[in-house]
Design a protein around this nucleic acid. Structure first.
Length: 791
DNA sequence: GCAAGGTC
C-alpha cells in the first residue's frame, strides 16, 4: 500500500531540484495557490515502502513575529513595556497562498518530509511548516531529510535516512527572533521619539525620520565610527629612512634600510653621514628560492561581496542584487552560501567545459582541460561549509545576454574567472634577495621573476608584480648610484572600505552572509553613515552622536560583543545545553535594565545631539576655523574628562572655551562677538561641577548690551551665570549658533538632573507628550518649553 | 513606522 508523502523545501528552486533527482526527471509539475511555489508529483520508494510523493516549497520563513495590536502603536505604550508585551506569530498576507497549498496537500498525506536547508533557520522554518500542517492533519508522521548539497548521492541518501526534526535548533531561532524584536522595537521607538522632534535631523521632508536601533546595524555603525575615531586621533609623526639605489648596465636595484625608519632625526643623520663617508657597498648575501602565489578558495558570499567591491567597485547591495538576478536566470549557483569548498563528487570538468565556448576566456578553459598543459588542480578547501549550498559557481554558459546590465556582466565574469582560477595551478615565481653592507649598516633588495602565471592568466583582477635584480655575486663591491636620506610621515589608517566592513562583520559574527549587505544599506538609509566614491564609510554627525551618546552612558550597545554573547547563548540552546525560556528571560531582563538606565540618562544623548548638530551646522558653513589658546585653564573638560578646557580665540577674533583634546573631543562653549576681551581669573565658581571652574573677566561692547549691565563682568561659563546667559541669549549673532545653545544646554542639563533626583523615575524625560492629545497614564509632562532650534 | 532572518 503506497503512502502519500508531502515534501517541503525552503525555496521553489530546491523543490524542483530535489523532485528531479528523486524522480530521475520523471515528475509532473502543477501550480499551487502561490505563483512561485509549484507542486511536483512522482513515485518513489523509501526503504522498500512505495510512496506517492508531493513536493512543494515555502519561500524562506513562513511566519513573522510581531507585538499584539495594541503594542504596535508607538504612542500607546511605554517602549519599556515592549520587553514583556505579548507577541504573536502569524503568516503574513503575502504567504497565505503558500499556507493554503500546504494545508490542502497535508490533509491528503500520511507523512510530512521536511527538506529545508540544514541550518538553524532551516530547522525553524521546518517547525513553521509542521505547525501549519499539523493544524489540519494531526496524524502526520513528521520526518526530516538531512543533506548537504543538491547532488544525486546526497539527496538519495537523505531520502533513505530520514530523521526527526531538531526542536533545540528551532528554539534557538525563536529566541533570537524574540530578542531582536523586543530590543529593536524598544530602542528604536525610544531614540526616535526622544530626538526626532527636538532636532532638525538630516532627512528630507517626505522621508520617515526613524532612528533605528538593531543588534546588527548598531555594531556595524560602531565599526565605522571606531575607525573614524582612529583616523581623527592619529598624530602624524615624521620619520627618516636611508635609501640606496644601484644601477648596473641593464638593471637597477633599490635597497631598503634594514632598520626601516627612525623617528629620531639626529640619529638618522648621524648614520647617514657615516654611510656617505664610507659608501662602498659589499654584497654579503644572495639568496634565491621558488615561490608561489595561490589561487583563491572557491567563492562564498562574503568573498564575492568583498571581491566585487575591490575589483569591480560595486557596492554590496548592488553585487547581491545582480547575483540574485543571475541566479534566478540560472546563470550562477545560489549566491548566499558560506561554503568555500567543492565536494568530491562535483563535476568540475563539465563546468569548465561549458566555458570553453567563451570568446575571451574559452581558450584558457580549453587549456585547463588539456592534461599536457598541466594547469589543472583540484580546488583548495577554505574550511567553511554551511551544509546547504555549494560555493558560488557558473551553472550556465553565457557570453553576455542582451538584457544584462553592466553589473550583471561584471558579476558573471567575476564568478566564472574565479571558478576557473580555483581549479588552476598556483602562479610560480623565483624570488631573489640581495643584502649589502655599507659602513656597518645593512640594506636589502628583492627581485621576482614570474616563471608561470597559471591562474593569474584568467584571474585578471590580481597581479604579481615582477621586478628583476642585477646579478650580484657574494663579496661583490660597488659604489651606490644614489644614497639618500628621505623623510616621511606616518599616515592614519584609511576609513573603512566596504570590503573591510564586511570582513569585520564576518569576523565578529554580525549578520549572516545573506543579510550583511542589508545592514550596511541600513546605515546609509538611516543617514548614520555615508559612502564615498572609493567605497569608504564615514559616520555622519547623527551616527557619531548616537554612538557617542551610548558610549558615555557606559553601554557598549554599539560594540559587537553584545551580539556575540547572544549568538553564544543561541548556540547553547541549539546544542541543548541551555533552555530557550531561561535564555530569553535572562537576556531580556538584562536588556530591560539597560534600557531603563538609558532612559534615565537620556539627557546624555540629548547633550551629544546638541554638540554634534551644532558642529554639523558649523561644518556645513565652513565655520570651524583654527583657534589659538589665549588664556589659561577654565575647567576640566566634563565631556572627555581627559583634558582641560582653555580660553581660545578664533581668527575672526571671537572667543571660545574649548577642550584641549580637540579634535578628538569637540566640547566647546562659543562666546559671541559682544565679548571684546576675556581673561581667565583665579576665582572659582561655587556652584558648577566638576570643580574647579575658573571665572573669566569679560569686557563687553557697550553698544551691544542692555544699559542695566556693566561692560565689565566676572562670570562663569559653567551655565550658572544669569548675566552671562542673558547677554549671550540676546546678543547672539543670527543665524550662527552661539551662547544661546550653551545656555539652553546648561538649562536643559540642569533641569534634567534636578528632575531626575526629585522624581527618581526613569521616564520623566519623555518629551513627546506634546504630540498626542490624550495622555497615556505613564506620561509625565516635561516643563521645559519645547525648543526646536533653527540650527 | 521598530529587528533580523529567510526568500520572490
Amino acid at each position: 500500500m503506497a503512502v502519500n508523502v508531502l515534501n517541503v523545501a525552503e525555496k521553489p528552486s530546491a523543490a524542483k531540484e530535489i523532485a528531479q533527482i528523486l524522480s530521475h526527471g520523471d515528475c509532473r509539475s502543477l501550480s499551487g495557490h502561490s505563483v512561485y511555489n509549484r507542486i511536483f508529483h512522482f513515485n518513489y520508494m523509501i526503504g522498500g515502502q512505495p510512496c506517492r510523493m508531493v513536493m512543494t516549497s515555502v519561500s524562506g520563513h513562513l511566519m513573522e513575529l510581531d507585538f499584539e495590536e495594541q503594542f504596535r502603536k508607538w504612542y500607546y505604550c511605554d517602549p519599556a513595556d515592549l520587553f514583556q508585551a505579548p507577541v504573536r506569530r502569524y503568516v503574513p498576507q503575502d504567504k497565505l497562498g503558500i499556507k493554503r497549498t500546504l494545508e490542502e496537500q497535508a490533509r491528503n498525506c500520511q507523512w510530512l518530509v521536511l527538506w529545508l536547508d540544514c541550518d538553524r533557520e532551516g530547522e525553524n522554518i521546518a517547525y513553521e511548516v509542521v505547525e501549519v500542517c499539523l493544524n489540519v492533519n494531526r496524524g502526520l508522521n513528521v520526518l526530516r531529510a538531512r543533506f548537504s548539497a543538491f547532488i544525486e548521492r546526497e539527496i538519495q541518501h537523505a531520502a533513505q535516512n530520514l530523521h526527526r526534526p531538531n526542536r533545540n535548533l528551532s528554539d534557538a531561532v525563536d529566541a533570537r527572533q524574540e530578542i531582536d524584536l523586543r530590543i529593536g522595537a524598544s530602542f528604536t521607538r525610544f531614540q526616535t521619539m526622544l530626538l526626532k522632534d527636538r532636532f532638525v535631523l538630516p532627512f528630507d521632508e517626505h522621508e520617515k525620520a526613524i532612528l533605528s536601533y538593531g543588534p546588527c546595524q548598531f555594531p556595524t555603525l560602531g565599526f565605522v565610527v571606531e575607525r573614524y575615531w582612529q583616523v581623527q586621533a592619529h598624530q602624524p609623526e615624521d620619520f627618516w629612512t636611508i635609501n640606496c639605489v644601484y644601477r648596473s648596465e641593464n638593471d637597477s636595484a633599490s635597497f631598503k634600510w634594514a632598520r626601516g625608519h627612525l623617528f629620531d632625526y639626529v640619529a638618522a643623520v648621524a648614520i647617514y653621514e657615516m654611510c656617505v663617508e664610507e659608501p662602498l657597498a659589499t654584497v654579503f648575501s644572495v639568496t634565491g628560492r621558488e615561490t608561489r602565489k595561490n589561487p583563491p578558495h572557491p567563492l562564498n558570499t562574503v568573498e564575492l561581496v568583498k571581491r566585487a567591491s575591490r575589483f569591480l567597485r560595486l557596492g554590496s547591495q548592488e553585487t547581491m542584487k545582480a547575483a540574485e538576478e543571475l541566479y534566478q536566470q540560472g546563470f550562477i549557483s545560489y549566491p548566499r552560501t558560506e561554503t568555500d569548498y567543492f565536494s568530491e563528487n562535483t563535476d568540475l570538468r563539465r563546468m569548465v567545459e561549458e566555458q570553453t565556448r567563451h570568446p575571451v576566456w574559452g581558450n584558457y578553459a580549453h587549456r585547463l582541460l588539456d592534461s599536457r598543459e598541466n594547469l589543472w588542480r583540484h580546488p583548495s578547501n577554505g574550511g567553511h561549509d554551511d551544509k546547504a549550498h555549494p560555493p558560488i559557481h557558473p551553472t550556465r554558459f553565457s557570453d553576455g545576454e542582451p538584457q544584462w546590465r553592466n553589473d550583471h556582466k561584471a558579476v558573471y565574469e567575476l564568478v566564472v574567472r574565479h571558478f576557473l582560477a580555483c581549479v588552476s595551478q598556483p602562479a610560480v615565481g623565483y624570488a631573489t634577495k640581495a643584502m649589502i653592507d655599507i659602513a656597518g649598516e645593512q640594506f636589502s633588495a628583492n627581485g621576482l621573476m614570474v616563471t608561470a602565471r597559471n591562474y593569474l592568466e584568467v584571474y585578471r583582477y590580481e597581479n604579481w608584480a615582477a621586478s628583476t635584480l642585477p646579478n650580484f655575486d657574494l663579496g661583490q663591491q660597488f659604489i651606490p648610484t644614489r644614497l639618500t636620506l628621505d623623510a616621511g610621515r606616518t599616515q592614519p589608517p584609511p576609513l573603512l572600505s566596504e570590503a573591510d566592513l564586511i570582513a569585520l562583520m564576518d569576523k565578529e559574527g554580525i549578520g549572516t552572509d545573506a543579510t550583511m549587505h542589508d545592514h550596511i544599506k541600513k546605515l546609509l538609509d538611516r543617514r548614520y553613515a555615508t559612502k564615498d566614491a572609493q567605497t569608504r564609510f564615514c559616520p555622519t554627525n547623527l551616527g557619531e552622536a548616537l554612538v557617542m551618546g551610548y558610549d558615555t552612558m557606559g553601554y557598549e550597545l554599539w560594540k559587537p560583543h553584545l551580539r556575540s554573547i547572544m549568538e553564544r547563548d543561541m548556540k547553547a540552546v541549539g546544542d541543548g545545553i541551555k533552555v530557550k525560556e531561561n535564555v530569553l528571560e535572562t537576556c531580556l531582563q538584562q536588556m530591560k535594565t539597560c534600557f531603563l538606565d538609558v532612559g534615565f540618562k537620556a539627557f546624555q544623548l540629548l547633550l551629544y545631539f546638541l554638540i554634534f548638530l551644532i558642529f554639523s551646522r558649523l561644518e556645513s558653513q565652513n565655520q570651524v576655523p583654527e583657534a589659538v589658546q589665549v588664556g589659561g585653564i577654565v575647567r576640566r573638560c566634563p565631556m572627555c574628562r581627559e583634558a582641560d578646557m582653555v580660553l581660545k580665540r578664533r581668527p575672526d577674533s571671537k572667543f571660545m572655551v574649548g577642550c584641549r583634546n580637540f579634535p578628538q573631543c569637540k566640547n566647546v562653549v562659543w562666546l559671541p562677538s559682544v565679548v571684546m576681551e576675556a581673561t581667565v581669573t583665579t576665582h572659582t565658581c561655587n556652584s558648577c561641577i566638576p570643580a574647579p571652574v575658573y571665572k573669566i573677566d569679560f569686557k563687553f561692547k557697550r553698544a551691544e548690551i542692555p544699559p542695566q549691565y556693566s561692560i565689565y563682568h566676572t562670570g562663569c561659563v559653567g551655565g550658572c551665570d544669569i548675566v552671562l546667559n542673558d547677554i549671550m541669549n540676546i546678543y547672539r549673532a543670527p543665524p550662527a549658533p552661539s551662547g544661546s545653545n550653551f545656555a539652553f544646554l546648561a538649562r536643559l542639563t540642569e533641569t534634567l538632573c534636578r528632575e531626575r533626583t526629585s522624581t527618581g523615575s526613569s521616564f520623566w524625560t519623555w518629551p513627546w507628550c506634546c504630540l498626542s492629545k490624550t495622555r497615556p497614564p505613564w506620561w509625565r509632562c516635561w516643563e521645559i518649553p519645547k525648543p526646536k532650534p533653527a540650527w
